[in-house]
Design a protein around this nucleic acid. Structure first.
Length: 500
RNA sequence: GGGUCGGUAGCUCAGUCGGUAGAGCAGCGGACUUUUAAUCCGUUUGUCGCGGGUUCGAAUCCCGCCCGACCCA
């Protein structure tokens, strides 16, 4: 064993000092952090397996168990004690008495602290109040906890501390644990759904020489050996379409994107997206597919197709509404006429008098989209596809054959938020090259979020991309919806925070 | 970036009119062999977010800053 060198203690207090003294005493008597305990049972499994077992049955069977967990509650009496241990699956009570472990061991146990990791071996029984409990024959302290747990009844409530010290949130707050277990279930369900439809799961670069695939500001880093700046990806789109060119005709990726933007209850600088692409499909098929994917995910992860969010019932079971931008504005704001919405001058004067955000250089389509964002987006509570986005804001989407100024694109909205974005892919390399050039012109004109010209992507398209549909789904926002969470920080284990 | 609310013991919180701070939990000591947030008795613990200012005196009033939550852009 190497010498123990204690680091400079941080925010030390009397309670921590007491516990350090207990740990020092443990070191004197032997191995302070033993790792020779064999865990054979989980609390949750035992509760499930012996839910029906009566007092008498347990007494007759003499079920031996070995389990371990964090001590969350402790009730010490003179010659016997109860404690509650918590493992990954749940909680189970143990009963420690002079009769079964000896007075010396029980005496030691009395000085163990809430938060300590404890191993217990013994026999299952039921108490007077019928609670399944382990009558302990051997009890060991496996890991001394030096820091006191939050107050045992209220748990940790300080939002900042919940985010900064998620490990404390998870050990004391059942709801927090459930959210992240549901998140795992959601991602598992999506993956199985995609596999079930013969999609190939792939991993494309997180570090890009040219940031592409979305309109966003990237994070910059530097590769020393190559002496080149690199960008954390803002989207995997251009790489996934290269794979479709290569012949992987159905691909998907579930992974992180990074966008150098502000923080909010809906934005974290790194967030998880599922993007998928399928050759020989268009945006109408993608809407059907996305709809059934989300329906299935809700059903498996939450047990139903109707989910409660912020006091409202969101129905993923019935067909999602599909509206053009103008149709959606008129459905939710009937006071605006078709004629007004097709009138550039009227729209601009509306933005001016309502201090709405718009870009003066935009055409009618772009202005209509800005108007939609100002007046309608937050009213789209039930799942709604908005379709036919203007080409000027959709540089990677295929134009409509009948209306080349719009694209075959949709965005899916729920609870007033964008959840997904998909389109028939632009596979005409010459049109794509021209659209990149237009993006470059906008970047030169000062639009920081405009795209770069990606010459290799054009080269890939020149080999021939089959007609393809592709879609991205914001996983964090989906988890928020399905776990009724108000903030994206509640569904990300370690959300971005300012430095302490 | 703007607005609202908040930051007091390890945790959850109270703190009146400006008079140098309290409760519960946790901890420590004691009683208790079926407890359930165990109970009962005793007891320890503070950079009142930070820095200025007003005042004989500031957790409290004023100004600035930091951190967080929520809302808005």
């Amino acid at each position: 064993m190497t010498e123990i060198i204690a680091a400079e203690p941080q925010d030390e207090n009397k309670i921590i000092a007491e516990r350090r003294a207990k740990l020092a005493a443990l070191r004197e008597t032997g191995v302070a952090f033993p790792n020779d305990f064999e865990r054979k049972h989980f609390a949750g499994d035992l509760h499930a397996q012996y839910a029906e077992a009566s007092k008498e049955m347990l007494e007759a069977e003499q079920v031996n168990v070995q389990f371990a967990g964090r001590m969350m509650l402790k009730r010490v009496m003179g010659k016997a004690s109860f404690a509650t241990l918590q493992d990954m699956s749940g909680r189970l009570q143990i009963y420690v008495s002079n009769d079964h472990v000896g007075e010396e061991n029980h005496q030691a146990f009395k000085h163990w602290d809430l938060g300590d990791i404890v191993a217990a071996s013994g026999v299952l029984f039921r108490t007077k109040t019928n609670e399944l409990t382990v009558q302990v024959h051997s009890v060991r302290l496996l890991s001394k906890s030096l820091r006191p747990l939050p107050e045992k009844f209220h748990g940790l409530t300080d939002q900042e501390q919940k985010y900064r010290q998620r490990y404390v949130d998870l050990m004391t707050n059942d709801d927090a644990r459930k959210v992240f277990m549901t998140r795992s279930k959601i991602i598992q369900t999506i993956r199985q759904f995609m596999m079930g439809h013969d999609f190939l799961e792939v991993e494309t670069p997180m570090m890009h020489p040219i940031p592409g695939g979305a309109a966003a500001k990237p994070f910059v880093t530097h590769h020393n050996a190559l002496d080149m700046d690199m960008f954390l990806r803002i989207a995997p789109e251009l790489y996934l379409k290269r794979l479709v060119v290569g012949g992987f005709e159905k691909v998907f990726e579930i992974n992180r994107n990074f966008r150098n933007e502000g923080l909010s209850t809906r934005h974290n600088p790194e967030f998880t997206m599922m993007e998928f692409y399928e050759a020989y499909r268009d945006y109408r098929y993608l809407m059907d597919f996305t709809e059934s994917l989300l329906r299935e995910t809700a059903r498996v992860a939450t047990g139903g197709e109707q989910v409660s969010y912020n006091g409202e019932i969101i129905d993923l079971g019935k067909p999602f509404d599909r509206l053009t931008i103008v149709q959606a504005v008129r459905k939710y704001n009937p006071e605006y006429s078709e004629a007004q919405l097709s009138d550039r001058d009227w729209l601009i004067s509306w933005f001016e008098s309502n201090k709405g955000k718009y870009r003066a250089t935009d055409g009618l389509g772009g202005l209509q989209l800005s108007f939609f964002e100002e007046t309608t987006e937050t009213k789209l509570i039930q799942p709604t596809f908005i379709i036919d986005y203007p080409a000027e804001v959709s540089p990677l989407a295929r134009r409509s054959d009948s209306h080349p100024e719009i694209t075959e694109r949709f965005e899916l909205f729920m609870v007033g938020r964008e959840l997904a974005n998909g389109f028939s892919e632009l596979n005409d390399p010459e049109d794509q090259a021209e659209r990149f050039m237009e993006q470059v012109r906008q970047k030169e004109a000062g639009d920081e979020e405009a795209m770069h010209y990606d010459a290799d992507y054009i080269r890939a398209l020149e080999y021939g991309l089959p007609p393809t549909g592709g879609c991205g789904i914001g996983i964090d926002r989906l988890v928020m919806l399905l776990t009724d969470s108000a903030s994206i920080r509640d569904v990300i284990l370690f959300p971005q925070m300012r430095a302490e």
